[in-house]
Amino acid sequence: MAGRLLSMRALPLRVSFQKASMSDMRSIIGNREIVGFGYNGQPNYADRPDFPLPAIRWKESTADIQALREKEKGDWRKLSLEEKKALYRASFCQTFSEMKAPTGEWKSVIGCALMLMSLGFWGYYFMKTFVYGPLPESFKEENRSAQLRRIIDLQVNPIQGLGSKWDYEKDEWKK
């Protein structure tokens, strides 16, 4: 039921986006050229190594870029290296090596994780010092051994429990 309601709610959004005219898209993307289907069929740009063909070009068309586009239709050996780079940068924001370059984000992630761990330790210390009382008397070693001796003397659960491991005749643990 919930899935059906959700799909019915999303239906007008999909229909309205599909019916959107090219002028509506131009108001969003500007003067950039649409060159393909893209990642999800929408006219958007994303630098992604796993999907290297965005739907639109990175920069808007200018007179300089239009002149270079006309020149590239001819022999590419006549283009200089700077012109080839300008054409590439007009279509793409980053190269593959720039996309895959390490960002150093791991440092902030480790720092945040260590700060959260520190906050947890300080919270534990605060709770142990100011909130929790002392441990009960039954946690002391002599009280625990006296309680164990009382369990053995009363022969509590002598078949499968702790009493089954005690030799009552020799008054020691079974070997």
Rank of each mutant, 00 (worst) to 15 (best):
G38S: 06
G38D: 01
G38P: 09
Y39F: 14
Y39R: 12
G41R: 05
G41S: 06
G41T: 09
Q42Y: 11
P43A: 04
P43L: 01
N44I: 07
N44Y: 09
Y45H: 04
A46C: 09
D47H: 06
D47C: 11
D47F: 09
R48P: 02
P49V: 14
P49W: 01
P49E: 08
D50T: 10
D50F: 07
F51T: 15
F51V: 12
L53V: 14
L53F: 09
P54T: 03
P54G: 01
P54Q: 03
A55C: 04
I56L: 08
W58G: 04
K59R: 09
E60M: 08
E60W: 01
E60D: 15
E60F: 02
E60S: 15
S61Y: 01
S61P: 00
A63V: 10
A63N: 04
D64E: 13
D64Y: 05
I65P: 05
I65M: 08
I65Q: 04
I65C: 01
I65L: 08
Q66G: 12
R69Y: 10
R69N: 08
R69W: 05
E70H: 13
E70V: 01
K71T: 06
K71G: 02
E72G: 02
E72S: 02
G74Q: 10
G74R: 14
D75T: 03
D75L: 00
D75P: 12
W76M: 04
W76P: 02
R77D: 08
K78M: 04
K78L: 11
L79D: 08
L79T: 15
L79A: 07
L79G: 11
L79Q: 06
L81W: 00
E83C: 00
K84T: 12
K85F: 02
A86K: 06
L87N: 09
L87Y: 15
A90N: 12
A90T: 09
S91T: 15
F92N: 03
F92V: 09
Q94F: 14
Q94S: 13
T95R: 05
T95Y: 11
F96K: 14
F96L: 08
E98F: 11
E98H: 10
K100S: 14
K100L: 15
